[in-house]
Amino acid sequence: MTDPVLVFDLLLAAAVVALAVASLSVRDLFMAIVLFITFGLLSALAWVRLSAPDVALAEAAIGTGVTGALLLKTLHHLRYVTGTLDRDPPPSVTPATPVPAPVIWANAAFCGLITLGLAAAFLGAPQAGPGFDPLVAEALPASGVEHPVTAVLLNFRAYDTLMEGVVLLAAVIAVWQIERGLSDAPAPALGEIFDGFARLTLPAIVVVGTYLLWKGAEAPGGAFQGGAVLAAVGLLLLLSRLYVPQPAHRGVARWAFVLGTGVFAGVALLVAGGGRVAFEYPAEHAKTLILLIEALVTISIAVTLAALFHGREPVALPSSGGKKDA
């Protein structure tokens, strides 16, 4: 109890838990989403305290930023189809049948048991037990990059990252299929302040995103964080109607979706010959290959996240959409 920062930790932890409770218990859904976004940003701050800046960046950009935008877009759509768009405050969703009390008690008991088990396991486990850090530190010089998290993501456990790209690809295919023929909610009115904001921030976001990608080789940052920041460019372009997706752009969008994953898999197959296994990059080219893969994966992530935000495939309808300017 000597470190005064521990007081900050305790306060932050209390705020995180309180925001989690509040975001589930507040009646207004819009408020719930805003509380959730605050919760995500404070969680990211907590992870910075736990010396995990990469994870904090990813959580702030993807887990909170992009997810928050997706949630708000969905809420806008729900209010549009239920005809409660203009009413303020909107009538809260009243459940048709309230949950019976025994069900709530059974759920609570079940959750309590799981939580107790988790807590017992966590408190009983040795803190800071043997991990992979000595192994990673030992192999780091051979990876081609200086930042351990990037080395793990793009080299030592590259299969995970490749499959992550496939998951994103599957998600965008699923969203396009689910929303086929769905009518779009009218775009919310944004006003002059937003236009000015977009004009000022767009160039800055492009610089920040590229910097995150480039810096990822030696410091916290990388393809996913950079990609999410660049996806924000797509979101702003879509929201401000500076870019309206057209059916003719679908071909480019599809190529952009598969670009990262395709090149990633291609490199893996190329290096696989001559006694090496997949992802065993030749040492002299490792950094070049990793940066190439990261750059293309970043583009794919940015386009895919923006497409996930936009939702519907831009088919020939009166208004259409689907991807950001590649």
Binding site: I62, G131, F156, E164, V172, A174
Partner: peptide
């Protein structure tokens, strides 16, 4: 810190946003 769990959480965050997008659609 140990970089392997960090990489796992980053992967998890990206998978979660994909799952969320499909659920919301």
């Amino acid at each position: 810190p140990d970089p392997v769990p960090h990489a796992l959480v980053i992967t998890g965050i990206v998978v979660m946003v994909s799952a969320t997008a499909v659920a919301l659609a």
